[in-house]
């Protein structure tokens, strides 16, 4: 029984760790999108001014 609990704990730990990694990847993706959106906003402002 203890052995089974230990195995289950290990599996849960692994899933939790990969969940954290996936969340980390999502945050990095969001950061790139935020920078891109800010850049496009600047482009719109400059376009409006130049026009």
């Amino acid at each position: 029984m203890e052995e089974a609990d230990k195995t289950l704990g290990k599996v849960r730990g692994r899933w939790r760790r990969w969940g954290e990694h996936a969340l980390g990847m999502a945050i990095e993706f969001s950061a790139v999108c935020a920078i891109s959106l800010a850049a496009l906003l600047i482009m719109f402002i400059i376009k409006a001014i130049v026009r």
Binding site: I35, A38, A39, I42, I46
Partner: peptide, 21 residues
């Protein structure tokens, strides 16, 4: 990340001016 975001946005600003011109 802050440095990258700042310099990219400065670059985009100049790029937009150049393209707009």
């Amino acid at each position: 990340v802050r440095s990258f975001a700042t310099t990219v946005l400065i670059g985009v600003f100049v790029l937009s001016l150049g393209f707009g011109k």
